[in-house]
């Protein structure tokens, strides 16, 4: 590199140094330190003491750990596909030439702007077993709604239902992708006699497949890390710990029981799970994703 290029590099680094310092101090260092802590008995106050794999052994023999993992997986398995499909359907509908389209787009996007604490409080009332509006509506069609928040069978479905409410974010991404699909592909398909369904399956889906893939990966990460709503609505885990999610149990260990080493180990196991699922998702969807630039 010439002297000038060195200088430019220096200038560039100096300008991004606040971010670099922030990244090193607040992301990289804590992440690396937590690997070390996961092999230690560490309570924040005193120096960490090396205990080898004990935290991991305790974790895998802890029934509550497995329950929290099961709850989280259950939630992810249902909320993720549901969210992907519903947000895509809404986006497709909102991409039609209908009247007051911007208004509908705003309405459907609005819930994802509501702060999570506020929406959790509202859902507490919507899902109230006796006075909740959901059970009232079910009552109108002759169904007796369950006690969503107090019955362990219904706590996870409640949270899955709530997750669908916040699909506005991924819907906007789908909308952007849908508007990018070349019109001439639809015209060619029409000339070939394709129905609306065929156009959707053979033109729309392949053309927006990178965005579906993006939403899938972000969805996996988001669903496995879900914390705020179950924590606000169920605190310690709800009836029979049916709403004790992985991130909530991790938080409990760290900040209620001062088991930072155990919590760090949990965090790394979660990282490995997410990493693995993302890898699987990437491997299995690779052949079905169409990139125009390739």
């Amino acid at each position: 590199m010439t002297r000038g290029e060195w200088r430019n590099l220096g200038v560039g680094l100096a300008f991004i140094s606040p971010w670099i310092i922030g990244f090193l101090a607040f992301t990289l260092y804590p992440a690396l330190a937590s690997i070390y802590y996961s092999f230690c008995d560490y309570d924040v106050f005193s120096r960490p003491v090396w205990i080898g794999l004990l935290n991991y052994r305790d974790m895998f023999t802890d029934k509550v750990f497995w329950k929290s993992l099961y709850n989280t997986m259950y939630y992810a398995v249902f909320s993720l596909p549901l969210g992907l499909v519903i947000s895509l359907l809404i986006a497709v509908m909102l991409n039609q030439q209908i009247q007051a389209r911007p208004l509908f787009r705003t309405i459907y996007f609005l819930p994802s702007l509501v702060p999570v604490v506020a929406s959790a409080m509202i859902w507490l009332w919507i899902l109230n077993g006796k006075y909740g509006i959901l059970n009232y509506l079910l009552g109108l069609v002759g169904l007796q709604g369950p006690d969503w928040l107090a019955d362990e069978l219904w706590t996870k479905p409640s949270l899955i239902l709530m997750s669908v409410w916040g699909v506005g974010g991924s819907m906007v991404i789908y909308l952007a992708a849908l508007q990018d699909v070349p019109r001439e592909l639809y015209e060619s398909a029409l000339i070939d006699g394709a129905s609306a369904w065929h156009k959707f399956v053979h033109v729309t889906i392949p053309m927006i497949s990178p965005v579906i893939y993006f939403n899938l990966i972000m969805g996996i990460i988001g669903a496995l890390q879900v914390f705020a709503q179950p924590y606000i609505m169920f605190g310690g885990g709800g009836p029979n710990r049916s709403a004790l999610f992985y991130a909530v149990y991790l938080y409990q260990n760290a900040f209620d029981y001062y088991e930072m080493g155990f919590a760090s180990a949990m965090a790394w196991v979660l990282f490995i799970i997410i990493f693995f699922l993302t890898w699987v998702a990437t491997r299995t969807t690779r052949r079905h994703i169409y990139y125009a630039g390739e």
């Binding site: 100096a14 300008f15 606040p18």
Partner: peptide, 10 residues
Amino acid sequence: RGMKIGLLLA
């Protein structure tokens, strides 16, 4: 000048 500003920010 840029470097100085960058350092100040840092």
